[in-house]
Design a protein around this nucleic acid. Structure first.
Length: 216
DNA sequence: TTCCAGCATA
DNA sequence: TATGCGGGAA
C-alpha cells in the first residue's frame, strides 16, 4: 500500500514542526530587506549575511533609492562578509535598477503583478535564479510559491521520494500540487527543511539516527 | 579543511 | 557538465 504523496508531505511537515517548532522566517524588518537577504545568501551562511545587512543598515542604505545611488564598488565593500561580494554587488544593483525603473522602487506595486508574469520578469534579471526569486515572492511578497533548495532536494532524494535527476520545477510542482496553496504553510515548510538539512541531513556526514524524519 | 538559505558561463 | 566566485565559522 503506497501512500499518497500529499500524505507523505504532510507527515514530513508535521514531524519537522513538532521537532523544531516555528522558525519565524524570514528574519527581516521589511520586504526589501528580504530581497536583499535573498540575493546575499546565495550559497552563503546566513550568519555572514547578517553582517552584510547590518553594514548597510548602519549606513542607512537599506532602501531602493539609496542602493540605486550607491556605486557598485562601495556596495561590494559593505557586503564583503556575505562572500562573492563583487558578484553580489552587481546582482543587487541589477535588482534595484529593475525595481526603480519598472516599479518606482515600490515593492508593493511589484507584488501586485500576477505571480507567473512577475516570476518571468524577475528571471530575466542576471543573478536572480529560481530559488532567489521564489524566496522573494514567498517571504517578501507573502505569495503562495514553494521554495526549493539544496536541502529540499537532498532530503527528498535520500528518502527516495524523487530520483537523482529531478529538476527544480519538478520538485516545486510536487509540493505545490500536493499541498494547499497557503503562504504561511510554504513559509514554515521550507524553513523547517532548511533546519533539518543544517542539523541532520548534512551534505557529507548525515545524522540519520537522531533525525526527526528517520523511518519515514 | 569543509561548508554555507546559488547562479552564470563555457 | 564543470568551474569561478569568497569571506567567515565550525
Amino acid at each position: 500500500m503506497t501512500r499518497k504523496i500529499s500524505e507523505v508531505l504532510q507527515e514530513i511537515y508535521q514531524r519537522l514542526f513538532e521537532f523544531f517548532g516555528p522558525q519565524n522566517w524570514w528574519p527581516a524588518e521589511t520586504p526589501f530587506e528580504v530581497c536583499v537577504g535573498a540575493i546575499l545568501t546565495q550559497n552563503a551562511a546566513w550568519k555572514n549575511v547578517e553582517k552584510a545587512i547590518s553594514n548597510l543598515k548602519q549606513k542607512g542604505l537599506l532602501s531602493p533609492p539609496a542602493l540605486y545611488q550607491l556605486p557598485v564598488e562601495k556596495l561590494a565593500e559593505l557586503i564583503k562578509p556575505s562572500g562573492f561580494y563583487n558578484l553580489k554587488a552587481k546582482r543587487l544593483k541589477s535588482f534595484v535598477e529593475f525595481l526603480m525603473l519598472n516599479y518606482q522602487g515600490n515593492l508593493d506595486l511589484m507584488f501586485k503583478k500576477p505571480i507567473s508574469h512577475l516570476r518571468a520578469e524577475l528571471l530575466n534579471i542576471k543573478g536572480l535564479g529560481k530559488e532567489t526569486i521564489d524566496s522573494i515572492l514567498l517571504y517578501g511578497g507573502n505569495l503562495p510559491v514553494f521554495v526549493v533548495d539544496a536541502y529540499t532536494y537532498r532530503i527528498l532524494n535520500r528518502h527516495f521520494l524523487v530520483p537523482e535527476e529531478t529538476t527544480y520545477d519538478e520538485i516545486q510542482a510536487l509540493f505545490m500540487e500536493n499541498l494547499p496553496p497557503d503562504p504561511q504553510l510554504f513559509n514554515e515548510y521550507h524553513a523547517l527543511l532548511v533546519a533539518c538539512g543544517k542539523s541532520f541531513c548534512k551534505k557529507n556526514s548525515p545524522l540519520c539516527d537522531p533525525c526527526p524524519l528517520k523511518g519515514l
